[in-house]
Design a protein around this nucleic acid. Structure first.
Lengths: 213, 213
DNA sequence: TGGCATAAGTTAACATCGATAACATTGTTG
DNA sequence: CAACAATGTTATCGATGTTAACTTATGCCA
């Protein structure tokens, strides 16, 4: 019965369902969190039946994993754009970019690190994307250390500390766990400075140096 | 038909459904994560019909919130047990206890901080429990600062840094995000030392002190 | 060009879940 | 002892993930 309008594609073979599904799912995630992502609802909004999505995503978890992968890639891109000339400035800037990303995309960030998606070990692409972001941070630390800006502690240790700090700060601020609100723009920079310069009093630093003169 | 066996309670009025529900839900959370908690499944295991649970928990989210509250209280208890005599030792120990808790109860920890339950602002008891744990950490920092062990930076700033560090370290280790595995027992202590003593090289520390002699 | 394999949709159906309404039973208490 | 509140029950609704079986469009190859 409805077989005319030849120039207009009207039904079957939607075009690029995968891309549009990904896009709409990402938007839903951004605005309402991952719990609000329903394959049926997505399908309805895309004007398609629910099982159609299973042609392109074997699983709901797989779709979420792809969103997380995109998140890691976006984060990696932003981190890579940081200027690496001056060690201290680079380290601070990396941290700022990281926390900014989490605050701009809280729901995406939670999906990336919430431990909700399939364990990393079983999803190679997701694991690779995560490692890519980590590498940028690690390279920044390694570079700063080679330039003599950092102590000769193992790079892995300093990197773990730096990542823990920015990740913890991100999580706590986007969930409102820090008192005084997360409105303080200088908080991130101040916290990072503490990791660089230490939080001990000068007297303590002094007496500690005296041990190995 | 079945109206005998008077000494044995057999049906209606289960006894203490709330407590047993809480207990079973906690066990399920521990072993399989919060996503595995289903009110219907809990009811079946408790030998009771599903709507019965709604007499005691207005909502699934409410049950999860109670589990999170219990988690914060348990964490607070552990943190309070830390000896506060020597500032440095206390700070390190607080961090170790914190990370240990997260590693022992990863699923509970994720529920507490995953941003999955109702926003803190709308659940007063949950918010209070969280603040209780935070207070212990803050007091430890304040005490160490008053004893002259820490720099005169604002207590809120140092506390935010310390909490971010241990929280980030917890999250990253329980999700396996740190390379080399989370098997290193000294990692937490080393990372905390970095925050206390700084990660800058001695030369940098020196030149920075020279600015304000 | 005709035919056919395959990719990409469809409807139908199943199991599970959270949640509510209406009803039944128990225990307590004035 | 009778009324009432507390605490269960069954029946039911709407939504979800997922699979099975079927249908249609697309593209490739003899």
């Amino acid at each position: 019965m409805p077989s005319n309008t030849p120039s207009l594609k009207f039904a079957y073979h939607h075009g690029d369902l995968p891309k549009q599904t990904h896009h709409l799912a990402l938007e839903t995630l951004r605005e309402h969190g991952d719990a609000a992502i329903s394959l049926r609802a997505l399908a309805k909004q895309l004007g398609v039946s629910a099982p159609a999505l299973y042609r392109h995503f074997s699983d709901r978890d797989t779709l979420l994993a792809e969103l997380a992968i995109g998140g890691f890639e976006a984060l990696t891109d932003r981190l890579r754009a940081v200027d690496q000339q001056m060690p201290r400035k680079a380290l601070i800037e990396i941290g700022l970019v990281y926390v900014d990303f989490a605050q701009e995309e809280p729901n995406l960030y939670r999906l990336m690190f919430g431990g909700r998606v399939l364990p990393m070990s079983v999803h190679p692409r997701l694991d690779a994307a995560r490692k890519g972001a980590f590498k940028v941070l690690e390279n920044t630390v390694a570079n700063a250390r080679e330039l003599g800006y950092l102590k000769p502690s193992p790079v892995s240790l300093i990197t773990a500390a730096a990542w823990s700090l920015v990740h913890g700060l991100s999580q706590l601020t986007i969930d409102g766990h820090l008192p005084g609100g997360n409105a303080e723009p200088m908080l991130t920079e101040s916290v990072l400075s503490l990791l660089l310069e230490g939080s001990q009093s000068d007297a303590q630093q002094q007496s500690q140096q005296d041990l190995t003169p």
